[in-house]
Write a protein that binds this DNA or RNA. Structure first.
Lengths: 257, 257
DNA sequence: CGAGAGCTTGAATCCGGTCAAACTATGTGG
DNA sequence: CCACATAGTTTGACCGGATTCAAGCTCTCG
């Protein structure tokens, strides 16, 4: 984010109207992009017509690399809000530049790592069980990405439909989750797009009752670390697995260690 | 994958026992790794004790980069099978090497892109609706990654529990899905770990009835591409969205175009 | 002011999680 | 070599929660 300045020489700004397609994986990626203002979404349309949003792009986020790979999906990036501005960089030029500027090359690697982190965070979101958990965690992540955790209020950049397609839920379920969170006093809504976090703690757990009782309910039948950990983790800190085994007591306990 | 040869000079092989922790995000990543043989899984343990596998690592896959980032999760990579071999590369050495070898730098970028693609594919998997879809798509992806689509038979490298935690399902549901697929004649099982794809077509859809009737059922109520596409995709190929709108007929049709 | 996108709520259905129990495979110790 | 223990797998019954379908609402923009 610092030595990327050299890249800025190549930047060409594009102003996008709402819903406009910015790039699609159907043609060889000629450009890298960075969201300057507004927001964008990377979408996949399934054979059955459902849409899934696999990446939500906010100001500062890069996208468009990940050159055609084996298991790469047919995704499209669209601007979400009217007047979204993205900077585009001719890929060839950028790569040539990186060839002679090791620092830039490192930064570009870093950019890819950030995209990977973003995608992993998304993956964790989808792995959650209940809809309230998903929506709650999504709000927290969004507020974190938008304001760096500074505030507890956020203007949602996307619609309920987009949220639904982000979380692999139906719109109705997203709505219900939000109203439920509101009624429980976990969040507050001003209009439909403005959310304020009231009880951060409860939002992180997202679980049934909002008071503290983390694990110890919800304890049984899980196949956690142990599920096939039949070798004591030889490495330096074997304590990690155990911590989790300790706090959850269900079946399938660890044998060794 | 070709000019990475120069990197091989740094490689130090490690033999891992079953379940052994290879690296954890709790300490600054000193190494990059590559799976040589066997397999590994990147796991996250949630507060409630559930485990999620966010990356399945097969021979040839790199992991361990994605230096500490903002929204990075506390994950751990473990060997799945006894005798898994991973090559490790001292990160600093590798980066210094890349500084003087632009081709290597490009390859390293490519490695990150591959990890990103892998994670995206996983994201698509989790976004599927039914358990059968998830399991079916998972099998296809696995067979693709293992044999490059050459065969239609695969020896599952991981247990049902691992599959469950990959797909955010319960073990029981994974089992049921597999038996159901078997009974429908979509797959064949030899023992518990060996799967043969019989009806690839049906597996890709994963949907209720196995005969061809893709979209056109399952048509209503979806918020697909159009959901907030109020600007005609100005770009060169606006046909993309339309294709999908055409094949699905539900509400919320596109206004423009 | 009207139209349509976006949002919300309700009712019925169905799928997947949970709990329970049995079965198989594998490996270990007597 | 067999008995036993344990991990891994499978099947069944039940229940809760998410999707689906339906309808009404609000907000915005022309």
């Amino acid at each position: 984010m610092h030595a990327l300045q050299s890249l800025q020489a190549l930047a060409v700004s594009i102003r996008c109207s709402r819903g406009q397609e910015i790039c699609s994986s159907s043609r060889p990626a000629e450009y890298w992009y960075r969201v300057v203002s507004g927001s964008a979404r990377r979408c996949v349309i399934r054979a059955d017509g459902r849409r899934q949003i696999i990446d939500l792009l906010l100001p500062g986020d890069f996208f468009g690399f990940s050159e055609r790979n084996e298991y790469d999906c047919d995704s499209t990036v669209e601007a979400v809000v009217e007047g979204t501005i993205v900077a585009s960089y001719l890929r060839n030029r950028a790569e040539m530049m990186a060839d002679t500027d090791p620092q830039l090359a490192r930064e570009l690697r870093h950019v890819a790592y950030k995209a990977l982190s973003r995608t992993r965070a998304h993956l964790l979101l989808l792995g959650r069980v209940t809809a309230r958990e998903k929506v709650g965690a999504f709000l927290l992540e969004l507020i974190e990405r938008c304001s760096g955790g500074a505030t507890d209020t956020i203007k949602l950049p996307i619609s309920r439909y987009d949220i639904a397609d982000c979380l692999a839920l139906s719109v109705e379920t997203v709505c219900r989750s939000l109203t439920e969170l509101k009624q429980r006093g976990v969040i507050a809504l001003s209009g439909t797009r403005c959310v304020r976090i009231v009880d951060r703690q409860a939002l992180e757990e997202g679980d049934s009752d909002s008071d503290a009782s983390f694990a110890r309910r919800k304890v049984a039948s899980f196949h956690r670390g142990n599920s096939s950990a039949d070798a004591k983790p030889v490495g330096p800190r074997a304590g990690r697995q155990l911590r989790h085994n300790g706090q959850a007591n269900g079946f399938r306990q660890l044998t060794g260690t």
